[in-house]
Amino acid sequence: MLDDFLVRAALAGLAVALAAGPLGCFVVWRRMAYFGEATSHAAILGVALALAFSTSIFLGTLAAALAMALTLGGLTGRGLAADTALGVLAHGALAFGLVAVSFLRGVRVDLTAYLFGDILAVGRAELATIWAGALIVAGLLAWRWSALLTVTVSEDLARAAGLNPARERAILTLALALVVAVALQVVGALLIVAMLIVPPAAARALARSPEAMALGALAIGAASALAGLWGSLVFDTPAGPSIVVAASLIFAASLVLPRLR
């Protein structure tokens, strides 16, 4: 079954939905869209480093995303990173990454695969890595769910309840870096944030509890992945962007449908 590239692609898409849906809820609630953008753009820099040092793309991406997320976390924690600073870092990291890749002579790199994903080329080994990463993210979020929610609602209330907000923020940072590394091959660096934000935004309209919103985001992400893959086959369109198109259409429907009832 895993011999079929389409089955592998579908499984990779589902793994991304599993991790990005619930984590994306926190990105939406904590208004971290730009934060996520900067972190995912740093992945291109990670690709360049991985190629330069001949290590795995997954590890290079993970390291670069983690470094960026920690830097940003430190800045925002001290109230320094405004919109502008985040914008500089987000696009600076992307530009540095693109330039760095071009310096790698003798390496033929298809940058589109990293910018927009290459889900149809996911092999068995990559599929295993993607699922391992996604399960770690889902496990982290399930384990810390209540604490993460409390910290997101109010850091002062969390502290009064004996929680350590810095620790919960660090868990979200780690989860974000993992999602970036996992989703790079599926939707590409430029569209990872879409998988974090669009499914939760679509789930919001129907959800009455945070848990329902997280599960709804997961389901919508999964449906988008499958629908996007199907669309890319039928209409011969790029798979990664097609997945995001499917998610966006579901979001649009979530805005319109409740009003028709």
Binding site: S146, L149, V153, L157, A158, R204, R208, S209, A212, M213
Partner: peptide, 12 residues
């Protein structure tokens, strides 16, 4: 964030 009063009182 969809959050009912009951759920809010049950945090954490």
């Amino acid at each position: 964030m969809p959050l009912s009063v009951g759920r809010f009182l049950s945090l954490p």
